[in-house]
């Protein structure tokens, strides 16, 4: 046995020869199972915040192929049921697969026509958690980070789930770069649970617009066009497309060189 802490439990290479990983799949294949596991076409951040009467979600329209701005008009916010929006970042093919799954879920629910309401935000979130955790446990993950926004017992609901099956809830959430750049701005409004009760739609909307602007400034995989979904009890789901406004790039003309240069 190799007793070095980094290789504990493996036969020693110097005694038994190079360890053959193929033995894990003895009988089925000559080589170990390999999967190409990496996202290809990807969407960047999704951000969300609760306010007194509902939830706002935003995601830009860019789908990148590595550092290429491949598809510039992709929608990454989807309505599911009457009062829920799912925002997806990460691999776009996996996103579309999840979208199909959720559409099917809604269709199945409508077949019943039994008077029960369709899928709710918590139930959709639970479904996605089980789905993504199942796929990660099969070592074949759906390479996404997802926000689910809607209502739970008439209270605003916002929850996160990602490719590992990790979930959490908060008054404001973000995926990807939004975690670093948008959250500090959104937490100024809703830092604690319940703070959203003192936040109006106008305040929340302004914070989202500001955060999307900062993301466009500093996230190299973001663009200035984005969808905003507003979910309220009265009006249900409203999704619109908009652009970053009141940006300022004029400081750039003041900068010369990288230190001692004057002209």
């Amino acid at each position: 046995m190799e007793h070095h802490q980094a290789n504990w439990g493996r036969p020693r290479n110097d005694v038994y020869g190079e360890y053959d990983f193929a033995i894990h799949n003895a009988g089925s294949h000559d080589e170990p199972t390999t999967r190409t596991l990496q996202p290809t076409v990807t969407g960047s951040s999704v951000i969300g915040i609760k306010f007194d009467k509902g939830v706002i979600l935003a995601a830009d329209t860019l789908a990148s192929y590595g550092s290429l701005r491949r598809f510039v008009d992709e929608q990454r916010l989807f309505q599911v049921g009457d009062q829920t929006v799912v925002g997806i970042s990460g691999d776009v093919s996996d996103m579309q697969n999840i979208q199909d799954t959720l559409d099917q879920l809604e269709i199945e629910a409508n077949y019943d026509a039994d008077g029960y309401p369709g899928p709710t935000a918590p139930s959709i979130h639970m479904y996605l958690r089980r789905l993504l955790y199942y796929q990660r446990s099969r070592m074949d993950p759906l390479w996404n980070s997802i926000l689910v926004a809607g209502f739970k017992n008439d209270e605003p609901y916002l929850a996160y789930v990602d490719l590992l099956g990790v979930t959490y809830q908060s008054g404001c959430l973000a995926t990807g770069f939004g975690n670093y750049l948008a959250i500090p701005l959104l937490r100024k409004l809703v830092d604690n649970d319940g703070d959203e009760k003192n936040v109006t739609y106008e305040q929340a909307r302004k914070a989202i617009e500001e955060a999307m602007k900062v993301l466009f400034y500093r996230d190299g995989r973001a663009t200035d066009t984005y969808h905003v979904a507003v979910i309220t009890k009265e009006a249900g789901v409203q999704i619109e497309k908009t652009k970053c406004e009141n940006m300022s790039w004029k400081f750039a003309s003041q900068i010369k060189g990288f230190g001692t240069q004057k002209e």
Partner: peptide, 26 residues
């Protein structure tokens, strides 16, 4: 090296930058 009217560094640089980008003016 870099020149600029405002800047941030460190593990919290993005959080600080978010504030600087949204509130700085010349």
């Amino acid at each position: 090296t870099d020149v600029g009217p405002y800047m941030s560094l460190g593990s919290g640089s993005l959080a600080a930058l978010a504030v600087l980008e949204s509130k700085w003016h010349d």
